[in-house]
């Protein structure tokens, strides 16, 4: 049996996945990327190996992806996160899909045909509105633990809407909402709603919509809201945050023969 690893070195977190040639996930690990990307990649790789019960020498090929993809010297291939998220999402949903990936600093909308080929993709421009960083900023401004946001939003019963652009202006708008006595649950739901709206205005969502990335992994209410706003069923793979790393590992399987 051959083993493969994918490492997704993202703007916020670094993810590793170890799989076998039957495409089964044997180990995975997520750490904050921090300021030392090679170290983060190494840590998460070692931890994923440990979970898989494997040694580095057991790994046949390693592929890296993500914004820091060139920060792991041991990799045989580097592939962009666009291709890796596509491969990872298509693994679970092999049909025409639109992938919505919300990451720490990037939003991606990727259109994929029935054979798994990318038709086209869009990413947010310079602005980080509607990304993970936006949510972190709002949690900080509202003095709420990041891990509580999903639960709070679920308790909301009011459809409160906020504008969809600019993190800084959103924070100001939220202050206004607080001043007029809106409940924090409703405001947080409004924040997630604005993330979903930001996605909708990026590009038309066609076919089945699959969401990936850390933001939806920790806040699945975004999938619910996106479904509500688009009248579409939103699909989530089992572990949305590691889809990019999984895709990287899957992509290199066919290259196993070349290495021998």
């Amino acid at each position: 049996m051959r083993y493969f690893a994918g490492i997704d070195i993202g703007a916020s977190t670094t993810k590793s996945v170890v799989i076998n040639e039957s495409k089964e996930i044997l180990g995975r690990h997520v750490v904050k990327s921090g300021a030392d990307l090679p170290a983060a990649a190494q840590v998460t790789y070692q931890q994923a190996l440990r979970e898989a019960g494997l040694q580095p020498r057991d790994i046949h090929l390693i592929a890296t992806t993500g914004f820091g993809r060139h920060n792991f010297p041991g990799a045989q291939r580097t592939i962009t996160e666009i291709s890796c998220h596509t491969r990872g999402a298509f693994h679970y949903f092999p049909r025409p899909i639109t992938i919505v990936d919300i990451g720490g600093q990037d939003n991606k909308v990727i259109h994929v045909d029935g054979t798994g080929r990318i038709i086209n993709f869009k990413m947010n421009r310079k602005c980080a509105a509607g990304t993970g960083t936006f949510i972190e900023e709002i949690a900080y401004k509202m003095d709420l633990p990041l891990g509580e946001l999903n639960r709070l939003a679920k308790e909301s019963v009011k459809d409160l809407r906020l504008g969809i652009y600019c993190t800084v202006f959103r924070a100001t708008e939220i202050l206004t909402k607080i001043r007029i006595g809106e409940k924090k649950e409703d405001i947080v739901r409004g924040v997630f709603c604005s993330v979903a709206q930001r996605i909708i205005e990026m590009d038309p969502l066609e076919g089945d919509v699959v969401m990936t990335g850390g933001v939806v992994a920790h806040n699945e209410i975004i999938a619910e809201l996106l479904g509500l706003l688009t009248n579409k069923k939103i699909l989530l793979p089992p572990e949305p945050q590691i889809i990019g790393a999984l895709g990287a590992a899957l992509i290199v399987i066919p290259y196993a023969e070349e290495k021998v």
Binding site: F67, I82, M123, K126, I251
Partner: peptide, 28 residues
């Protein structure tokens, strides 16, 4: 979209993904 300076890192990801799509027999 270009500005006085462009975010080379972000654009690199887009350009590489664009090239991967064109050479995609490799990946999919």
């Amino acid at each position: 979209e270009f500005d006085v300076t462009v975010p080379i890192g972000q654009f690199k990801t887009r350009v590489e993904a664009f090239l991967e799509i064109m050479q995609e027999e490799d990946l999919f």
